[in-house]
């Protein structure tokens, strides 16, 4: 194995929710540094559960998940925070603080990198401001730095979300349905951004997607989940419609693709 950072390994991992629902079942999975992995499956198949287990937002019932060979701590505390500092996350609903400026939102990605008292008093070192601004430029909205987040369009807000993750200078980015609240044009822009960032910076990227055509178009490696179980793991180039049918457990419909011509 290379010494590059950003590997993830699930070993016999299980997650059962308090209500009895199975979120993850006997998962064994290895993701190498720098991979661009698309996770597909119908809703409730455990896509979010998988991503959120990597940064400890969801806790395992049994088994282990390791990031760069270190087990993800299964309780709150400094160790978990340190792990999360190196794992960026992008959300379907952006999760920005709408009343704050774009800059403040991106600086949230630097919280774990500066002393607590500085963060509390909003006294950011020049280096961290610089990192935040570079992250904004990388997603092409450097000129929006001081605009209030609430004044941006959906696509721009998601770019701020990506910039926030980039500001962490992470080895891994987890994108949980990043395009589900966006229109088709913006969707493709955001997906291209994610691919470009993965290629330029070598950040291991896990993206949950519902749309099959997007998965095929942008994924290198595709992972299919069904009822929390790994049912497909292969390259995006060789994935067949039959494989998708198997992952979804049914024929797919217009709802499963972004561009209807692709059916």
């Amino acid at each position: 194995m290379s010494d590059k950072k950003g590997s993830i390994r699930f070993s016999d991992a299980n997650i059962v929710y308090p209500n009895g629902a199975v979120g993850m079942k006997d998962l064994n999975l290895e993701i190498r540094p720098g991979e661009f992995v698309v996770v597909v499956g119908s809703s409730g198949a455990g896509k979010s559960t998988l991503l959120r287990a990597v940064n400890g937002l969801n806790r395992l019932t049994s088994g282990t998940v390791e990031v760069d060979g270190v087990p993800v701590p299964q309780k709150d505390g400094r160790e978990l925070r340190e792990l999360r500092a190196g794992v960026g996350m992008i959300f379907q609903d952006f999760r920005l603080v709408k009343r704050l400026s774009v800059m403040s939102n991106v600086l949230i990605g630097r919280l774990a990198h500066v002393p607590g008292w500085r963060a509390m008093l909003n006294l950011w070192p020049a280096h961290d401001r610089d990192v935040a601004h570079k992250a904004l430029e990388r997603v092409g909205i450097g000129e929006k730095t001081w605009v209030k987040a609430s004044q941006l369009s959906g696509g721009q807000q998601q770019r701020v979300g990506i910039a926030r993750a980039l500001a962490q200078e992470p080895a891994i980015i987890l994108a949980d349905e990043p395009v589900a609240s966006l229109d088709p044009v913006t969707t493709h822009q955001i997906m291209r951004d994610l691919v470009r960032i993965n290629r330029d910076l070598g950040i291991t990227t896990l993206v949950n997607l519902h749309f099959l055509d997007l998965a095929r178009q942008y994924g290198q490696r595709i992972i299919g989940l069904r009822f929390g179980e790994l049912v497909y793991d292969g390259s995006a180039e060789t994935v067949t419609d039959e494989d998708f049918r198997n992952i979804y457990g049914r024929d797919f419909t217009e709802d499963d693709v972004l561009d209807e011509d692709a059916v």
Binding site: N55, F91, I108, M120
Partner: peptide, 28 residues
């Protein structure tokens, strides 16, 4: 509460989540 989780997902503590995700939302 989305932003609170976003702060915690980026490695920020509970207190910082209050400072950055809660206080700005509720202060007005």
């Amino acid at each position: 509460f989305g932003p609170v989780e976003a702060v915690e997902a980026s490695g920020g503590s509970r207190i910082l989540a209050l400072r950055y995700a809660v206080v700005p939302q509720v202060l007005p």
